[in-house]
Design a protein around this nucleic acid. Structure first.
Lengths: 196, 196, 196, 196
DNA sequence: AATGAATGAGCGTTCATTCAT
DNA sequence: GATGAATGAACGCTCATTCAT
């Protein structure tokens, strides 16, 4: 059972998906979508900026948890990497608009200073956490002697971005009726080349 | 000497850089930044949407020209690729906020239908044109027997995105005092791995 | 007790009387005159055009009802005609500016197409309805053998206009301290001549 | 050959005819219609209000002259009255929008106090002058023993308004394909009844 | 706790008027 | 004298926020 705050989060997430852009989301839309009065929304949040930025924090938290819990120490490098790409694909498919804003880093600029700061910190922290997961997965490959330990943070970054931009390409631009599994295999192979 | 329309373009570009986000740009800001009255702005554009979208078209056009004119047939693959990365770095440094919005594809949703359509077409066309340039550069490498012809559009896309995200990483996140030249060399080496 | 919509109608009617012309009425005037905020006005109407045209429809409706309910089958022709002129005098006195615009037919051109159409239809319908009342009154005179049945629509029109322009003359131009009753008697006599 | 001021008058008159309402006439429209620059218009008039009100004065003057010069002492009452109605019909047909505003008396309210006053005076004076003409024509009928001298200003007023509203009826509402001559004859007959 | 009617600051846009050329 | 580019006051409308119920 969702509490009121979560009802509001999901209302905003819904509007993210359907409304063209974040700036056009109105409090009245959120209230209607959450099946409550406008006044009620303000019982749980102090301002629109707070609603939007906390929703973003909520999405980030949820997604990070899903990505983290996907890793399985008992599986080998390839399985873990394929699963990682798969879960990311699912999460992005569910809310691609959100993720492209998140990745572009343009999220921060939507709010007043205080919220921007809080949000930027969360994003930084999340990225660090994400690289930790990526490192854990890649270390599996090192253990399996597939390649040498990746030390350069630049490469970590490039791999992370490649996974994301590959998914965006698959969703938005890829025209050959490529099966999901083949696509994921392709990304996996490209990553292998990058770490070699 | 800039004409009034260009003065307005540069005013908007300036606000892109400094103002938090596109949606917060006000006509009064543009007018002030361009040193003219609000009414004057409307002598040259019919609406705020037109101003923003035409400014974006203007930036795209300018940047595309610079990127295109950088290629030199008489130089070898490596020189051309390094120069390509360098000019992109310069252009993005000049207006990184714009580029991250452009790359995220979130630009379109800011305007009413007509402008969105026009803009999306330009972006599509620009991406195609960009891949053409990338292909031309990569073909140099093929001629030089550095690697085999790249046929998969997925790889083109991945390379293009890697260049961009690498630059964003260099600008925003890289903490080791990495020299520009070393950075560019690093990107070059990563691309080499990707096409092998 | 008036509801908000009616408060707005009466605010506009008040401004009709005092403000020079319809086109100079501002939303801020209406809001102030109705003792509410500008935003509140927009809770009840979608646009200024809607406010003005619906107010006009409201006035027409109210006036038509008063004029209609004045007719009494048990009274003779003269009494009915005198009462008819009397009620018209009262209504026009209450809002002469409105009536002269209404009669001139210049009302329609104030609004965008949709409202103009709706309003024109109402005006047409109202005029037909008015001529019906006039016919009913005149038929009393025919029953009483005062004159022959009036068949020519031109004469109907002329009588209707004569009543109106006579009243405007009495209100605005008549300088002899003519008693209302004497004036009405005068109009009555003129009408009698016209139908003979 | 028209001078600049007259070019502006005729530009405004043209816009009266075609534009829905007076308030929508823009200085830029007037300038374009008069084939001159906006600045030039202001060489001849001090403000938009002055342009509109002086144009109205010009139209009134022109029309009054035409109406006055129509009267012919050597013709009998009927001929003069028929000619009078005919010339009015022509003038109103030429610019019916203007005349309905003029008759409704709503003209005055378009301007600031000073112009309103000047205009109202002209209108009053014109109406007096018009009644003088009407009286002259009616006196012909008295001379010819058609009816007794009309003394009551109310009747003058009613006759004047009947002529006008009859013409408006003929132009806008009359649906039987009534010949102009028959229509004018009808109005003449109604007037005869009114003065009897 | 829940509501939604009421609000007004703030924005996009228009257009009469000015003034340098 | 003739011009039209430049201007900014003013208006219609939106929407985040408040508060009485």
């Amino acid at each position: 059972m969702l509490n009121k705050k979560e009802l509001i989060y999901y209302a905003v997430i819904d509007l993210f998906k359907n409304k063209a852009n974040i700036n056009n989301i109105k409090i009245s839309d959120i209230a209607k979508s959450a099946n409550m009065g406008k006044g009620t929304v303000y019982e749980y949040f102090r301002s629109k900026d707070e609603i939007i930025s906390e929703t973003i924090l909520y999405i980030i938290e949820e997604n990070t948890n899903k990505i983290t819990s996907m890793f399985n120490h008992n599986q080998d490098f390839k399985i873990n990497m394929l699963n990682h790409i798969k879960i990311l694909l699912e999460l992005i498919l569910e809310n691609s608009k959100f993720h492209s804003i998140f990745m572009s880093g343009e999220m921060s600029s939507l709010f007043d200073q205080d919220y921007e700061h809080k949000l930027m910190n969360k994003i930084m922290e999340t990225k660090k956490h994400y690289f930790q997961i990526l490192k854990t997965i890649l270390n599996k490959g090192v253990e399996e002697n597939k390649f040498n330990k990746v030390l350069d943070p630049y490469i970590f970054n490039a791999i992370g971005n490649t996974i994301f931009t590959s998914i965006m390409y698959y969703i938005h631009e890829c025209n050959d009726n490529l099966e999901v599994e083949s696509f994921i295999e392709k990304v996996y192979n490209l990553i292998l080349k990058m770490v070699k």
